[in-house]
Nucleic acid binder design. Structure first.
Lengths: 218, 218
DNA sequence: CGCCCGATTGATAACGCTCAAGGCAAGTGG
DNA sequence: CCACTTGCCTTGAGCGTTATCAATCGGGCG
């Protein structure tokens, strides 16, 4: 369990308490939903293996991918605000998640300052991630968005001990486009452009970053 | 103090504890900053009077307004994730805020479940607000963005007991544009268009919404 | 084998940005 | 008190980035 998001920064004697809490797990098949918008909120999740997207649906039916959640990352925080999930969580590949009942977690927070600290940190990090994504959507052009996205995914892979330079994008171009606020065609064009310039190598969804500096300088 | 964001949902006997905590206040003059990106995080704030914006600065200098905070709303949650503020908070008009030391608030959370609940709710609401703003930035066109923004401000005014149909936008067109991911000229054009259609009346920053249904149907 | 989904690439068009000019209101200094 | 400056807003013209539409291709799966 030490590879997961929750225990970081906890004292050794608190980890067992947390383990007792998160003992349950669940698998989510590619394309199926972990939870839906409107469902009552009762659990937080930690992605154990695989990856999921969160999707917000506008009343007219338009959909926007609001988050990508890789192994080791948290999921479900969207439900805390209104006791109801406000978006769907859909698996990008066959995945498994740890279930953390929110009420139990809250109770544990009152016993343990470091659990409390950890939960606050998770929420705070989500807030920061989202504001920087707002900056991406509001201020960057298509090329900069795709470059930023590749670097972001790379960094998150590295944090979990995987190669930062070679990884599988589990989503479609359309999902990437939705997340980045652009059409799937523009995503494809930007990736092709990067490949033509020798910045990345690409084979379908498999990406190898050849020139980090070039991506960073955009 | 009952008009503020923090006490909502607390038991009567807990409000005094909270009051002891948030006794200090601070004024922020129009254009001056309450906190800056990079500063160590130690306080949350509740806007008492006036309004502030939060601004994220890209390394190349580009700025994006990531939030507008009206009277009664919370401020400063961006610092929780990394113990450091990640954006600037700047007053849109002469304003005053309550200061809530975060460490003391954390301690109070461990004593009182309802204070804990309240703090979680504030963070959760911020997360939900931000995802729906991501949807706005990623999927709506200029007209829809401005319409959505007007309705949002209207609703937040209403929640505090002010008129939902007539209010002062304290920010410049440029700040609105930055928040909505568009140029100040486009903001101006959209407002003019709404006025021409009789949907709003406008006199500089003073807005009167004449036709809510028209705004909502965009 | 054929079908369908996803990706790529091109052509065209539109939405919104940039640049520019002008106006209005408030503040400043002579 | 008036000329001048300054900041903000509005409006127009032209252009560029990116969306849309369309055709083609390849791979996976029934």
């Amino acid at each position: 369990m030490r590879h997961l998001c929750m225990p970081q920064g906890l004292a050794a004697d608190e980890i067992p308490k947390l383990e007792a809490l998160v003992c349950t797990a669940r698998t989510v098949k590619r394309g199926s939903t972990l939870y839906r918008s409107g469902e009552p909120f009762s659990n937080l999740y930690a992605v154990r293996t695989g990856s999921l997207k969160t999707v917000l649906t506008h009343r007219d039916g338009r959909e926007q991918v609001t988050g990508i959640h890789l192994a080791g990352e948290a999921l479900g925080l969207d439900g805390i605000g209104e006791d109801t999930h406000t978006c769907h969580a859909v698996a990008l590949e066959d995945s498994s998640v740890c279930i953390m009942p929110y009420d139990a977690l809250k109770a544990l927070c009152r016993e343990s300052g470091s659990v409390q600290q950890r939960l606050h940190k998770l929420m705070g990090e989500q807030i920061v991630r989202e504001t920087s994504h707002m900056m991406l959507l509001g201020s960057l052009n298509a090329e900069e968005r795709v470059a930023t996205f590749l670097l972001d995914v790379s960094e998150r892979h590295a944090k979990r001990g995987y190669s930062p330079s070679k990884f599988h994008l589990r989503m479609t171009r359309e999902e990437m486009g939705s997340y980045l606020g652009m059409s799937l065609e523009t995503v494809s064009r930007m990736l092709s452009r990067f490949q033509k310039r020798g910045i990345i190598e690409m084979e379908g969804k498999l990406i190898r970053i050849a020139d980090f500096a070039a991506l960073r300088s955009m």
